[in-house]
Design a protein around this nucleic acid. Sequence first.
DNA 1: GCGCTTTCAGAAAGCGCTTTCTGGTAAGGT
DNA 2: ACCTTACCAGAAAGCGCTTTCTGAAAGCGC
Lengths: 386, 386
Amino acid sequence: MTAPAHGQEVVPKFRGPATTAPLGVELSERETPVHPDTRRRAPAAHVTLDAVAREAGVSLATASRALNGTTRVRDDLRGRVRAAADLLGYIPNAHAQALASAEGNRTVGLICHDVGDPYFAGIASGVMRAAAEQDLLVMLASTFREPAREIAYVSMLRAQRARAILLIGSGFQDRAWERAMDAELEPYVRAGGRVAVVSRHRSMRVDTVQPENRAGAAALAASLVKLGHRDFAVLSGPPELTTVADRLAGFREGLAAAGITLRRVVRGAFTREGGHAAACQLLAGGGARPTCVFAVTDVMAVGALAALREAGVRVPEDMSLAGFDDIPVVREVSPPLTTVALPLTEMGEQVIALALRRPSGAGRSRVLRIEGDVVLRGSTGAPPGS
Amino acid sequence: MTAPAHGQEVVPKFRGPATTAPLGVELSERETPVHPDTRRRAPAAHVTLDAVAREAGVSLATASRALNGTTRVRDDLRGRVRAAADLLGYIPNAHAQALASAEGNRTVGLICHDVGDPYFAGIASGVMRAAAEQDLLVMLASTFREPAREIAYVSMLRAQRARAILLIGSGFQDRAWERAMDAELEPYVRAGGRVAVVSRHRSMRVDTVQPENRAGAAALAASLVKLGHRDFAVLSGPPELTTVADRLAGFREGLAAAGITLRRVVRGAFTREGGHAAACQLLAGGGARPTCVFAVTDVMAVGALAALREAGVRVPEDMSLAGFDDIPVVREVSPPLTTVALPLTEMGEQVIALALRRPSGAGRSRVLRIEGDVVLRGSTGAPPGS
DNA sequence: GCGCTTTCAGAAAGCGCTTTCTGGTAAGGT
DNA sequence: ACCTTACCAGAAAGCGCTTTCTGAAAGCGC
């Protein structure tokens, strides 16, 4: 489960008196005492509204109205229906409700690469909070960065008649996939579905929560220049992602404003390991090292920090390091990372709000621009020898 | 969005040429070019199977069979139906399908406290991966630690006729809530629903993925004793949670095996801040400080580490610190934290597997015990002055 | 007391599918 | 040539609900 690695050691397993199995995992069974039958009748499969109506001695229609309160129902009847529903343990069938009513169902779909990634987890957390307030259920889909799966999920969410589909994070390099995605989304929107995205360009009638990647990166560059740096490198991600392109361009812009040219860009995957590898590559390259490195995401920056430490490069004394996003972990590492802070949970709340407020289907698309705050922390300082 | 805090500084926002709005957030609209009408007919609302059948010149029944392939359909007809479905952009209505078929719908419910917490995010990630492989959609519900919301979610998931309900993480202190939860779950299980939980005791016919908290904590204690420590403190969580109780008891057991008595237990919330506060409280108390501290979760340990650093306590020279869970962040802090590693994503995969494999409704309940590995990292060392 | 409106319960028509059940046609046996 | 199987398309009956429509009963003014 855990491979022994640099600076850590896995201790052989403790065998307490309670544990006898030789495996790391043990499956046991236990008999559950049969629940003593309460007063409640045993529902064979599912209690239907029909059963409730019969129990209450009213018609199906009345039972429905009594429980959902759309039209007036005499108080005594309503009481009887409620009591019957309670007694029988009635739970409405959401499918039948969605089918019968024009309302549709109270769910939204959320598609992201991986909830295990703190960036997505932060946004998802915001979506969840907002959804909870509106009694919406969120259908979560993790693509694990496979475009085919992403499209399949949109299709599934369409089948589920989700009120809205939320797409979080960069799209894929391959234009063909993006086109396929548009083809999938277009009829959905036409049919009244709402789509909103975070940090992803779309060609459609889709609302967007868009971090100001350029401005943020430019501001960061300006701050780093102010610390005295002249010599920069960027640890970048897949070049086709707009997020990457914008942050890189913004950083260049910020440097240019001070008459500085970016010396070096190293590309890596959008993961901790990608950042680690990119940093290693940067250090391996001969020549003078930059005094300051900007990783286009915090996740990469965390990997880079580890790489620098392993290589004996002191941060920030030998080299300053900055990231982007402000995921929680960057406050915990030492030194804590300078970054451009994005309000992740708030972005999650906004994207769902944007989608749900959208006038069904057509209409202009809105862009909610989110500014990032440059937060200087311990990972950046004056360049060495200044 | 980000309050200036200890050791960090928020830089005033950069105003690039592109940004003119004075707010941190800006809402703009843009007109989308109207999508040129393709060959495809414009679906007014939703394409129904009926429309597909008509287009293909076959009956509704045949269309259904052609698309789902349960019974044999002549190849040419099947082809015509498929073509018609493609042409019209048919997406089946999952609600109607669920309602009409005995199969039910392809969704499972996942209830946890907060996907923003790396512990839950890790498990959720595992659930997502397993679900993706079986073409299941996951309905995610975050309770934000409110028992009422948790019960409401179970009810909603019941209404959605989720194939399975997965409950992740400790239950609540209040026995009344747990009883209410049982009352909610019991008819669900009776009606054929599957329930599986991670790290949570239930009185019902429910499968469980249960980390070996006692054995793990005991093993950790043994390892720490072996490093030379005699003087321990525990940063604990809410005492009524079985997870907490087990880890604490296990740790005591491990110490007892070496003839050592635990000196001090400080309670805190199950969060980073809880760990921070508990550590502060521990340091504030006068008297000799323990040489080694065990925080019952990594999340708390991370908070504790920050508190120790702020108080000028060096880890591990002045004090050793260990956690439990092995969430990713503990490898990134310095020193990296010694902990008991739980295979979080694997636990997620197991809990959903357990639920889905469960013979519908009744039957024995199974317990999958997960052993933790003690992983010694830089946060633990020999006690000072040895 | 009569016709009027108003109130509210019940009957019934779907929502979009799956799945029997029915029946027509072609193939095979005698 | 006739009858039995076998195969497969279509009709129709729901799945569990919402919602319109219908109509009975009650309240009201005259």
